[in-house]
Design a protein around this nucleic acid. Structure first.
Length: 468
DNA sequence: ATAGGGTTAG
């Protein structure tokens, strides 16, 4: 009823308009207030711009207007907090160029936009770009802010630059529990679970109180180690420290994953059954557990149960289901699911689904069929796809096709090397050696040496020497 | 009140 005032001719004070903006629940209402403010010359200053953007962003189909408001406002009005707000609300991939533009226009970024952009770089694994943001953070005098530093650790950790993450952590004068949790997650992201657990012990020694979130990187570390006794200890800790952890989707899902990876499917199902709520991620984690343990039929039954519970499976769920078929040799079932994906579930098969199918066919010796799948797939096959074909060829002695798969794999590794490419190079070398193609063996070795020079982190000399 | 969270092929 407040909005009725707008259609009357009564003049509202500016403060009233601004607070009404916050209450508008649809685009039309926001537009009415906007118009009213313009006609009464009340629309000025950063505060008004931010309020208006806020209301347009939060109503249906208001995004376009929010953008117009930002771009049409005066340069003087677009200060750091206006930029900050806009960057916060825009899409992940837009935040970086916007941040750069803000700096080019001579507006110093604040900590909120810096955090936002660093997070975007973390999520898209943009190491190079994030490093530049980090430099800008120094220039803007934000480098000693704890939240910014913690996000920096998160960024370097996500991009697997664990040395930089450690360095930032070590250089911090003050750390919060979030900082410790973030550093533990960084170790987990870099597949260094032992260090994550060591950091937890150090955290306790230094008297830092763990939070509920602390248990997530802890469980992730245990899952990576695959040591059931450690995982059970963490579970016991959770039972003691967190009342009603059954209510927590994140903890439940991580427990299911952890127990599965530590080899205890029974504990995984027990946790799963005890969860108060279960979303698609929880169901998928359980399906993945069954897949890991070769329980193909049980995994397929999960799809039916999910539907009975009104859970809509996603592309990850199907990756797990196809993997389950693969591990249990359920060729027909796997192919059927693959067909059903787009038809019944509206999901477009992705490269990991193709790799499961190639593996599924290849394992049972249907090498030609597997190769045909690769040739006809509408997306670019990645290293995993070719690796699946390669191992099938080796398994079933298809030397010629093995050489072709090996060649493709080499090509991919040379343009975008994996974290651990050495295994591939060794496999390639073996394929060529078994075909007595010694020139190719030499070529692989040279390619490997070149890469180890270009790509020294994550490529230790130990790997190079394995060939000798 | 800022910053950190779960499932995925081999």
């Amino acid at each position: 009823m407040e909005f009725k005032l707008l259609t009357s001719n009564k003049l509202l004070p500016r403060a009233r308009c601004l607070s009404l903006l916050g209450l508008s629940s649809n685009k039309k209402q926001a537009m009415q207030i906007h118009a009213q403010m313009i006609t009464n010359s009340l629309f000025h200053g950063t505060e008004a711009v931010v309020e208006l953007m806020e209301s347009y962003f939060s109503v249906q189909e208001g995004e376009e207007y929010a953008r117009l408001v930002f771009w049409n406002s005066d340069e003087a009005v677009k200060n750091a907090s206006a930029w900050s707000f806009f960057i916060q609300r825009c899409h992940l991939f837009e935040s970086l160029p916007l941040y750069a533009l803000q700096i080019r226009l001579g507006v110093m970024p604040d900590k909120v936009s810096s955090i936002c952009v660093l997070r975007a770089c973390a999520r898209s694994l943009a190491l190079r770009e994030g490093v530049q943001i980090h430099a800008q953070v120094f220039k803007a005098g934000l480098a000693s802010d704890m939240a910014v530093q913690t996000t920096g650790i998160h960024f370097y950790g996500s991009c697997r630059d664990i040395e930089s993450a450690c360095q930032m952590f070590d250089e911090m004068r003050e750390r919060s529990c979030v900082t410790w949790n973030t550093m533990m997650s960084a170790y987990c992201a870099s597949e260094r679970p032992r260090e994550a657990l060591e950091l937890f012990n150090r955290m306790r020694r230094e008297g830092v109180k763990p939070t509920e979130r602390t248990v997530l990187p802890l469980m992730s570390a245990c899952a990576q180690l695959g040591e059931l006794d450690k995982g059970t200890a963490v579970h016991a800790f959770i039972c003691k420290a967190i009342v009603d952890y059954h209510q927590d989707l994140f903890i439940g899902t991580e427990l299911v994953d952890m127990y599965s990876k530590c080899g205890s499917l029974s504990n995984a199902s027990k946790v799963f059954e005890g969860m108060a709520q279960r979303n698609v991620l929880a169901w998928t984690a359980m399906t993945a557990g069954l897949a890991m343990h070769g329980k193909g039929q049980e995994a397929l039954r999960m799809l039916e149960s999910m539907q009975e519970h009104g859970i809509i499976p996603n592309v990850v769920t199907f990756t797990c289901l196809l993997a389950a078929c693969c591990h249990a040799g359920l060729v027909q079932e796997g192919l059927h699911l693959f067909e059903l994906m787009p038809i019944k579930f509206g999901l477009k098969p992705q490269v990991q689904h193709y790799s499961c199918i190639v593996d599924l066919l290849g394992r049972t010796g249907m090498i030609e069929e597997a190769y045909n799948v690769i040739r006809n797939m509408p997306i670019e096959p990645d290293a995993v796809v070719w690796r699946a074909l390669l191992s099938a060829c080796k398994m079933h002695d298809h030397v010629d096709l093995a050489a072709e798969a090996a060649g493709k794999l080499l090509q991919i590794e040379q343009t975008s090397p994996a974290l651990d490419s050495s295994q591939d190079f060794i496999a390639l070398s073996n394929v060529y050696a078994s075909a007595e193609r010694w020139d190719d063996v030499l070529m692989v070795r040279k390619a490997m040496m070149n890469l180890s020079i270009q790509n020294k982190p994550g490529f230790s000399s130990v790997n190079v020497h394995k060939l000798d």
